[in-house]
């Protein structure tokens, strides 16, 4: 009786290996799928970014006669800012979910560089076109081990999204991770003496460090509108 039943051991092993491998494959496929999705978005964003750079070069080197140019340029930049922001949120969520592949980290760095460049574009465009939107730069730590910092940042992300929904095109929201070894951001952080996270830089003038009440943030933004 016993001898005839011992085959269940290797049959169970084969079944386990098959199902486990299938599960790993499905999990890996999910993760790769996310990476491909982000890479595809990235290619589109890259072209948009080149376009935005060309625009900046254009209005830096040309005398702008037609005010319509500014309207179009500002509109395009606001749309681009919103897309960059949503893409950043997507990457963060996927990074937290992916357990095998961490390829998204590279994409994330590239997006941060995009956003930094975009921010500088936004400053130039403001000056050239006398635009009245407010730049809100949100500094956060991508790899913090601190529970309070992580929950504060989680809340701040949601809060800024809510504020952005309220203000629409009147604010440009630019989230920048400060711990990905991007030297430009290190320079900005040092210049504004930012030591606590999350932090906001409003219109390149006002710094708010740590988690603040939504109404306090709105108050500071309103000073520039």
């Amino acid at each position: 009786m016993v001898k005839s039943q011992k085959d269940v051991f290797w049959k169970a092993a084969i079944l386990t290996i098959a199902v486990f491998s299938l599960g790993m494959f499905i999990g890996y496929s999910f993760e790769r799928g996310r990476v491909f999705e982000i890479e595809e978005d990235y290619n589109i964003m890259k072209l948009r970014q080149i376009d935005a750079n060309l625009q900046t070069l254009y209005y830096n080197n040309m005398v702008i006669q037609d005010s319509k140019f500014c309207e179009v340029a500002i509109d395009e930049n606001i749309k681009f800012a919103d897309e960059l922001y949503e893409e950043g949120v997507k990457i963060e969520r996927y990074l937290n979910a992916n357990k095998i592949t961490k390829d998204l980290l590279i994409n994330q760095k590239e997006y941060i560089l995009f956003k930094t460049q975009f921010w500088l574009n936004a400053i130039s465009l403001k000056k050239k076109c006398y635009a009245d939107y407010v730049n809100v730069v949100y500094f956060y730590k991508q790899k913090s081990e601190d529970f309070d910092v992580n929950t504060d940042q989680n809340v701040m992300s949601g809060m800024l999204f809510e504020i952005k929904q309220g203000y629409g095109p009147e604010i440009m929201l630019i989230p920048l991770a400060v711990d990905l070894n991007i030297s430009t951001i290190d320079i900005v952080v040092n210049q504004y003496n930012i030591t606590e996270y999350p932090a906001l830089l409003i219109n390149e003038e006002t710094v708010m460090q740590g988690l603040h009440n939504k109404n306090e943030i709105i108050e500071e933004i309103d000073k520039f509108l």
Partner: peptide
């Protein structure tokens, strides 16, 4: 708790702690 303290809205997406992942 922090959302309540900062008078900000909680988005449904924040409550989703179970993304389709291997676990």
């Amino acid at each position: 708790i922090k959302h309540i303290a900062t008078s900000s809205k909680i988005f449904p997406g924040e409550l989703n702690i179970l993304l389709p992942e291997m676990f």
